[in-house]
């Protein structure tokens, strides 16, 4: 490694990676705080079902749990992969 390379050496800016990972996991954990214990297992089983139609992985399935004045709301969203509209994926694959 020459001295110029050394001077130009970029530090590994891993803080931005940490920030993004934390944003996602903290948001997810907040949304399921106080939720029933079966959520992670349910999420996994849902993945198995969805996979029959579209190729997604566990990170694509978002579960949101809310409790307000006696109601408990379970909200589920699935981020589909780029370029594969839901309907097409559902009819053609699987």
């Amino acid at each position: 490694m020459g001295i110029l390379d050394f001077l130009k050496r970029k530090p590994e800016a891993t803080a931005s990676v940490a920030r993004e990972r934390l944003r996602i996991i903290v948001a997810q954990e907040r949304s399921t705080r106080g939720a029933p214990d079966y959520l992670p297992m349910m999420r996994n089983e849902l993945l198995e079902v969805i996979k029959k139609y579209v190729h997604v992985d566990l990170e694509a399935i978002n579960i949101n749990f809310e409790r307000d004045s006696g109601h408990e709301i379970l909200e589920l969203s699935v981020t589909l992969p780029d370029g594969k509209p839901a309907a097409k994926g559902a009819t053609q694959t699987g």
Binding site: P11, E12, A13, T14, A15, S16, A18, R19, L22, R23
Partner: peptide, 17 residues
Amino acid sequence: RVAIGEMLSVKDVEEIL
């Protein structure tokens, strides 16, 4: 270490939490 992007900044931590 924050200045060279190796460590989460005050602002990062405040925003995340």
